[in-house]
Amino acid sequence: MLRTELRKLLPYRTAWVILLLFTGLLAATVAGAGGVNVNGQQLGQALYALPGLWPNLTYLASYFSLLPAFLLIMLITDEFQYRTLRQQVIDGASREQLVLDKLLVAGLLVAWALLSVLLVGAYFGLTRAPNASLPAVLAAAPRPLLLYAAQLLGYLSLAALLAVLIRKSTPAIVALLLYVWVVERLIRYFLPDSIDRFLPIKALDILTPSPFAQTLDTVLGPSGALLPGEAVPVALAWAAGFWLLSAAVLRTRDL
């Protein structure tokens, strides 16, 4: 299962371009953000200082979560285009197996993203944070990284569902962008805060809160959004729902 997906993934040049772009953009943004001046002070100290380094990093990484999502859409829709999903069923794979294979690919993409954040964080933590040792840097990492993993898995799950539903890469990518940037925001206008905080993108985004969220809450009052810890089960429930829906669509459709 893993071996077969790696056989498809490793020689795929586009995948490497997107994954390296993700890592490169993250590293460049973290490096660049340290030089930003806020109220006459360089952000660097606040950005790289422990324990805030990791939440800051995962917040920045969340800006690039759509890149692995685009890649997953391409990997799935390519298989519809090449009719290789159809061939795998002919060769003896079950339709449920096809979904599990893509869930595994999503897991690999999450692992790449986590590794990227970990390496970038370790580098900037050790070189820019005041008086930081490797154990101290790494000790603060698990919680923010796990929250980020849940967020990315949620985005990838939605991307996979759209890819299975639409089967073509460009329309599926446009649909993902429309949902993330427009549709859900519109839906939120019509729902009370007590309900809209459970919507997928809102619940996912809260897993990597903005470094300025606390300040904003102080100025504007509590937002009514879930706390990151509360959002984890919601995010995982959405992710499970998206994969189950993908399996249901694949099970009932002609290939």
Binding site: K8, P11, Y82, R83, T84, R86, Q87, D91
Partner: peptide
């Protein structure tokens, strides 16, 4: 073992 309609392969492999 089946060949149905068209050959289905990953072109980049």
């Amino acid at each position: 073992g089946a060949l149905l309609e068209t050959p289905n392969f990953f072109p980049y492999l």
